[in-house]
């Protein structure tokens, strides 16, 4: 179903969910939960947004049943650790590539996806100051390196 323009700011979280559907269903589940909660704050009034959010809720409830025996879904504290570990693993991979002077699409995507997953962590509560800094740095680096490569410049 097409994403209504009012819900544009959750499109990358939903795409990350799709990318992880098979690879890591727990990540997919929490990306969709974050998108659901954020979407309801953005706009649950206009008919097309409500329709989209109802479909997303259907998907979440189905996933919940499919993952019923997974601790990361039934216990928030386990889910929180799962997402945080995954986000930081992606961040460290990208940061290592950056420090080694290896700039490429994969590392840009890893920086950006780690920043999206740090957004998702907010479903478990306030982000730590460290995670807020990581998210800011990761998003800035992804944008900076992407623009350098696009303009044929060498990132510093």
């Amino acid at each position: 179903m097409a994403l209504p323009p009012q819900l544009k700011s959750i499109q990358h979280h939903l795409r990350t969910a799709q990318e992880h559907e098979k690879r890591d269903p727990v990540v997919a589940y929490y990306c969709r939960l974050y998108a659901m909660q954020t979407g309801m704050k953005l706009d649950s009034k206009t008919p097309e947004c409500r329709k989209f959010l109802v479909k997303l809720m259907d998907q979440l409830e189905t996933m919940k049943k499919e993952l019923a025996d997974n601790d990361s879904i039934t216990q928030e504290v386990v889910g929180n650790a799962h997402i945080e570990n995954y986000a930081l693993k992606m961040f460290l991979y990208a940061d290592n590539e950056d420090r080694s002077g290896r700039f490429h699409k994969n590392m840009i995507k890893s920086f950006y996806t780690s920043s999206l997953l740090l957004d998702v962590l907010s479903v478990f509560g306030e982000l730590s100051e460290e995670n807020i800094q990581h998210r800011k740095y990761a998003r800035w680096k992804a944008t900076y390196i992407h623009n350098c490569l696009k303009n044929g410049e060498n990132p510093q």
């Binding site: 939960l33 309801m40 216990q75």
Partner: peptide, 27 residues
């Protein structure tokens, strides 16, 4: 129709909120 539409919308919103709360409660 305006008021009917609005009440349908808010009923659906309430339903979404309660489904979300239920989804999270079971975590």
């Amino acid at each position: 129709t305006g008021s009917v539409g609005t009440s349908v919308a808010s009923a659906e919103q309430d339903e979404l909120s309660s489904r979300l709360a239920k989804l999270r409660d079971q975590m």
